[in-house]
């Protein structure tokens, strides 16, 4: 470890705000990059499950009425 204390890690001899802001923004963007497709996939699968259920409902209805 290069730094002596947590305070030194945070301060980075005055460059702390720059370094930590850069890392913070990067992690935020990377997280969004991975969460965005995961959320879309979940929504799409829910939508497709709904379609399957509707189709089955139509099928059983038509059987009952005939």
């Amino acid at each position: 470890m290069y730094f002596d204390s947590v305070a030194a890690v945070l301060a980075m001899d005055g460059h702390g705000p720059y370094v930590w802001a850069a890392y913070g923004i990067t992690l935020l963007v990377l997280a969004q990059l991975l969460l965005w497709p995961a959320r879309r996939l979940k929504r799409l699968r829910r939508e497709l499950r709904g379609e399957v259920r509707r189709r089955e409902a139509v099928k059983t209805n038509s059987v009952e009425t005939s």
Partner: peptide, 8 residues
């Protein structure tokens, strides 16, 4: 030369 800012 750049100190800790280079860690970016």
């Amino acid at each position: 030369r750049q100190g800790n800012s280079y860690r970016i």
